[in-house]
Design a protein around this nucleic acid. Sequence first.
DNA 1: CCGGATGTTCACCT
DNA 2: GAGGTGAACATCCG
Length: 258
Amino acid sequence: MPEIAELEGYCLLAKDALHRQIAGVDDKDAYFLKGGLLPGTLAEVLVHRTFTQVHRRGKFLLLEVGSHELGLHFGMTGHLIVDRRDVADFESSVLHISEDWDRLVVHFDDGGDLRVRDRRRLGGAYLDPDLSRLGPDVLDITVQQLAAALVASRVSIKTRLLDQTRLAGVGNLIADEALWVAGIDPNRASGSLTEEEVHLLHQALRDTTRSSLERGSTSGGRLDPVRHDRGSCPLDGQLLSHRRIGGRTTWFCPAHQR
DNA sequence: CCGGATGTTCACCT
DNA sequence: GAGGTGAACATCCG
């Protein structure tokens, strides 16, 4: 369920994995290895070393080890587990999910481990991932950068917000929530936003993202509980509309989102 | 049984 | 080249 709030949680959790001697790596799930990574390579790179730093970039969690970086992506159902603990207050803990879905396990010599548990296997592990195509991170994008990311395109604004090469870290729920807060129709062409609307959207992205960080979860925003048939807008009571935009289900208020 | 799900990539159209 | 659509990935849920 990872969007930025979950990633920040994983980042904190992963700090517990730093400076511990790596004793072994289970990377036999070749499908989970991305970017040409082969089974066994991670073991070669990681064993007898330690993770020295962890940070986040967009939806990637990055663990520094020696001169390399282990990149973890969590897709839609991936979770990080360190020493049998997941992120606090996750709406439904993943610890009950079978270990059968552990796609990558890093064992430390003290008996603990770091693992990625991912049922749908839409996430992946990368060695030295190429992040050059990621746009500015939503947590610190400036309004000028946002304007540049949106300008001169007829793609819908919703689709544009999800394009990680333009703006990194926004997922489907945050995109809907921010557009709803800003009062912008998700189907509008990205390049058609006025300067004022770009400012509104910038502020909405900031507020929405920060609220999710405070909750520690992408779930639980104001729009989230009404994203269903017969759900109505918390602002004006209008029945919400939904449609697929850019391949993703999009909920919006037909009254105040223009 | 069918459709959909907090993501990304890729093939194939227009 | 740009942009849209749908499929694929694997599993669960309503």
